[in-house]
Write a protein that binds this DNA or RNA. Sequence first.
DNA 1: TTATTATGCATAAGAAAATTATGTATGTTT
DNA 2: AAACATACATAATTTTCTTATGCATAATAA
Lengths: 117, 117
Amino acid sequence: MYVCNMANSKLYKGSLTTIILKLLNESEKMYGYEMTQKVKAITKGELNITEGALYPALHKLEAEGLLDVEVKKVDNRLRKYYKLTEKGNKETVSKLEELKDYIKTMETFMSPKFSLD
Amino acid sequence: MYVCNMANSKLYKGSLTTIILKLLNESEKMYGYEMTQKVKAITKGELNITEGALYPALHKLEAEGLLDVEVKKVDNRLRKYYKLTEKGNKETVSKLEELKDYIKTMETFMSPKFSLD
DNA sequence: TTATTATGCATAAGAAAATTATGTATGTTT
DNA sequence: AAACATACATAATTTTCTTATGCATAATAA
């Protein structure tokens, strides 16, 4: 199966890490495919994370020590469960702060009149 | 002079086009350097658009027919004034819609509990 | 008066993060 | 039997940015 891209809007570029960290902050432990399905459900199909984006991102977060992995075999199929490390917990807090700041900044641009004169 | 990067947060990746379009939507016509200064002022120094990002982006928007250019010499220095075309106006509306949607989606991720169960 | 900063444009090399396209494998539906 | 769902992975390419320059004029500070 091939799923389409991440919300067509280029704005999502750069937010995948934040999304992954927040998912794991909520759910304790999750595996990759589960994340794609959960995000699709939460956003009512608006946001579809592609495997080509997700798996390299997970590997990178693991390499950086933000995630721990535990491999399990369920129904004769492999699953790699990820969970936040202590470092990952801290990073999640700071990423969510960054997101809040980003939204605040972009909302000033959105407002009909932001000029300074 | 070398100015530092675009807000250090990776979240800004992909939002430069939206920022440019909104600036021109407010100000009728602007030149590149003016945009960098205005953004710096509006965000109180948080967001610094680099020339290496801005100028290629402006050229691309021009090539796509979203912007018109008018070159002027002021104080013996060159300025390239950009303004939105009709197509650019429409694109601005849709980009701002996308931004609104993006923020709405990401805010559902921010909320402490978004699970579906 | 000379060096630095500000104004104003441009582009090239490289990195980062995604898209697009595959590949492998098992299980379930049609 | 074919198609779809589950579950991982990676390689080639594209997009978009950072970093680093380059050129040129004007104003200001040392």
